[in-house]
Design a protein around this nucleic acid. Structure first.
Lengths: 326, 326
DNA sequence: TTTAAAATGTCAAACGTTTGACAATAGAAA
DNA sequence: TTTCTATTGTCAAACGTTTGACATTTTAAA
């Protein structure tokens, strides 16, 4: 692969001049620039980022740690992150941590070793300490990591409220909420609280069904089937859309009609759901805005490691009404 | 961030010794190793990959260029690639090229600049020349790029055959195939041929509906609606599952029953479809095997840039029968 | 023609490693 | 004690850039 020296030789100038052209530094005549550029083109030259970064330049690499990308929510988020980062001249190293804390730790190490400029963290199997000692700009999605790591999220509490209101408005009385594992600091717990508080105001009660995040869809389906067939529920709030799809599936299999027999509200409202399951009433998280916010903050921190940022940035959610509620 | 010299000072040894410990090179006493390791731990030291790679070591970075990740097929593929690469000690730079050839070109440049060890290319807006002059190990998914770039794909022709057989077996007579833009070298065109050939053997004809890959689902839906309401079709083969979902959607809206009035076969058979739309008959591509193959070949090429590889690796597809055919 | 400014060149240090050559020291075996 | 070997150290070059100091040449204006 061609180096700066090769270009210098071919263009008949000094290496310093080539570097000056690349970095647009010092004074240069148009003629030299043209000579250098065409030599670069001729040899298909790409300045070695490794060397540049080593010399103190940014790597323009951002580490993105997420639970996974096969879930449409994170899929869309990754797509959005990639898109927006690209436009700002950054690239992403994608890290699917799953629910594996060892893997997350490994990735954190790798990202440090690779001297990424910053990290977007949306998966959190690890404790605070691990993230604190990374010493790189970090922005977190939807979970507390450490005091000086800003959290960007959407309004989970209000999302819970909207879901409850929407079910109440369509006349549900016997309510059920289906949610993943509820660690105390997880975003879903806020959704739950918003839901709960709204019902409390109406003096209504509800039941809670927890299905571990890591269960397969088949297992989840089975549990939902049991719920639907054994219990007289007429309104269900799922804290994610995929689970809501399973409810639709099981209800259909049992001959129950939605929304006549059971109303249903999901959560996330990805583009995918809006396109392929427009019937589902759901709470839409503003993925694009969330990403814009995160990248904006991250780049600020990259420019100035000590810049002051808020601890929390909460973006509004939106109710999208489909035919699974009335 | 701590450097090798810092470790040397803290451990009370020479920098060379530290490097020897890291690379397990030369002869070392257990005592020194322990001293060095504990110094590394204490300072949370990570060897600077940039410097190491500059000195000739691998970067352990792989560029993955795909059309996007919001489509479940590529979502699952990315997840699989990430997972398998991680296990082999590699990380991925994710490049969503979309249908933007300028972006793809930019990414190719960036990947060269970053001295990635290799590239997995699944998006191909660019011509052969661009890929040829990259000069890095490349493996292609499902499309011809250049003579010495191996192609890994699944058996698109047989997939088309299976789709046709399945529709014929369920008694369809008036067949339609819905497919994206059909550039001559695209994998979908093979699916089409397999489909066509099978029908020809039965002396049956079919109609072809092309919907540009870049149309939004709404537009696609509209065209499908038109098709369903204006034409007497009783069997549809969509060359991807998402389009098949739109057919289901539109058929439902028009009061047509599947499979009674129209049979339907999709393509891809991702985990997502299997979990959330098990009713859809579809052709499953063996994503995991495809990825294993690609990574295997890529790593071979990375170890030995000139190693001989086949031009084509075709993996078998599988018919998954759901209730959209009988 | 003189003079100043602009353009380019030379040189070298630095970034953080790896690696080889070679020397020095320690400990153990003969 | 001598001798060998294992361990560690010193030193320096290399990887491909960037950047500053400084010198020299070219160009254009006065």
């Amino acid at each position: 692969m061609a180096t700066l020296d090769d270009i210098a030789k071919l263009a008949g100038v000094s290496p310093t001049t080539v570097s000056r052209v690349i970095n647009n530094y010092g004074s240069l005549s148009e003629k030299t620039k043209t000579k250098v550029f065409s030599a670069m083109k001729e040899l298909n030259y790409q300045p070695n980022s490794l060397a540049r970064s080593l010399k103190g330049k940014k790597t323009h690499l951002i580490g993105v740690i997420l639970p996974g990308v096969s879930n449409p929510f994170f899929g869309q988020m990754v797509q959005e992150i990639e898109d927006q980062l690209f436009k700002k001249g950054f690239r992403m190293i994608l890290c699917n941590a799953g629910s594996d804390s060892e893997k997350e730790r490994d990735y954190l190490r790798m990202l440090m070793a690779n001297r990424v400029d910053g990290i977007i963290a949306g998966s959190h199997n690890l404790g605070i300490e691990e993230y604190q000692k990374v010493g790189l700009p970090i922005i977190s999605f939807d979970r507390y990591l450490s005091d000086n790591i800003p959290i960007v999220s959407s309004d989970n509490y209000h999302g819970g409220q909207l879901a409850a209101q929407s079910l109440l408005f369509s006349g549900s009385k016997k309510l059920e909420i289906i949610t993943g594992a509820n660690r105390p600091n997880s975003p879903t717990s806020e959704r739950l609280t918003g839901f709960k508080d709204t019902l409390k105001k109406q003096n209504l009660d509800f039941d809670l069904m927890e299905i571990s995040f890591s269960s397969t869809p088949n297992i989840k389906g089975l549990k939902i089937k049991e719920l639907l067939s054994k219990k007289a529920v007429d309104g269900i709030f799922c804290t994610d859309d995929l689970t809501a799809l399973l409810v639709i599936q099981q209800a259909k299999a049992l001959g129950m009609r939605i929304p006549e027999d059971v109303k249903l509200v999901g959560y996330d409202g990805t583009q995918f759901i809006q396109n392929y399951h427009p019937e589902l009433t759901t709470i839409m998280q503003p993925i694009s805005d969330i990403v814009t916010m995160m990248i904006d903050l991250l780049l600020k921190r990259i420019d100035d490691h000590d810049c002051e940022l808020e601890n929390n940035y909460v973006l509004p959610v939106k109710l999208i009404t489909g035919s699974t509620t009335i």
